[in-house]
Amino acid sequence: MMLPDGCSDVPAGKIAAIVTHLEMTTRPALRFDQPRAWSLRRVETPPLDWFRDLYRRVGEEWLWFSRMQMADAELAARLHSPQLEVYALVDNGRDEGLLELDFREPGQCEIGMFGVTAKLVGTGAGRWLMNRALEIAWSRPVARVWLHTCTFDHPAALAFYQRSGFRAFRRQIEITDDPRLDGTAPREVARHVPVIE
């Protein structure tokens, strides 16, 4: 269903975001990243508690909630798929960044999850992690790497992805229940998205 031109009401208890899908179809030149003490660790068969903790620390402020609502069996089936790779950016011995590369679609890599904790925002860690993501993705026989972001995300996210070499190709509006109203996310997070009951 296409929404009509103009404003459309969003029911109380719901949130709405504009989702932008971006892709690259050729391997880009990597942008400069300053050598740091960070390391990238592949997490084979990620423990669900570990994943949910890092997912929350990276994404709670940006209303990442879909994986928090998944039942254990559903989340395990996704994370433990042999075509899905989960990585952690390690800073001083602590996991502070999350990268999920999904190779389940032949010839493609979806960057399903990407981000760093608030501690590392603005330090260059995002650039460093994106360069590692692109190195891994393009080392495989893929013709396309893609991801999506939305207006709940960090305000610099879309421009960051475009600077990384991604090109927007699709836009959607997503309306869903506000996860702060059912306890999936704390009430006080994501103040850039007001709660309307």
Rank of each mutant, 00 (worst) to 15 (best):
P4H: 03
G6M: 01
G6L: 01
C7T: 10
D9T: 09
G13N: 02
K14S: 13
A16P: 02
A16R: 10
M24P: 07
M24N: 05
T25P: 14
R27F: 11
A29F: 04
L30C: 00
L30Y: 00
F32M: 15
D33P: 00
P35Y: 12
P35D: 13
A37S: 13
W38H: 15
W38N: 10
S39K: 09
R41Q: 12
P46V: 10
P47D: 11
P47F: 02
L48A: 03
D49I: 03
F51D: 13
D53R: 13
R56H: 09
R57H: 02
V58Y: 12
E60T: 11
S66I: 03
R67W: 13
R67K: 13
M70A: 15
D72Y: 08
E74K: 12
E74G: 10
L75I: 04
A77I: 01
H80D: 04
V86T: 11
L89K: 09
V90N: 09
V90C: 13
R94N: 07
D95V: 09
E96F: 14
L99C: 05
L99T: 01
E100T: 01
R104T: 05
E110F: 00
M113C: 01
F114L: 07
V116R: 07
A118L: 11
K119N: 07
K119F: 08
V121L: 07
V121M: 05
T123E: 04
G124L: 00
G124D: 01
R127G: 01
W128I: 06
L129Y: 09
M130K: 15
A133D: 05
A133H: 07
S139F: 02
R140G: 04
P141A: 04
R144C: 14
H154L: 15
H154T: 10
A156Y: 04
Y161L: 04
G165A: 00
R167P: 00
A168K: 05
Q172A: 08
D177P: 06
D177Q: 08
P179A: 01
G183T: 12
A185I: 12
P186I: 14
E188N: 06
V189P: 10
A190M: 02
A190G: 02
V193W: 05
V193G: 01
V193L: 03
E197Q: 10
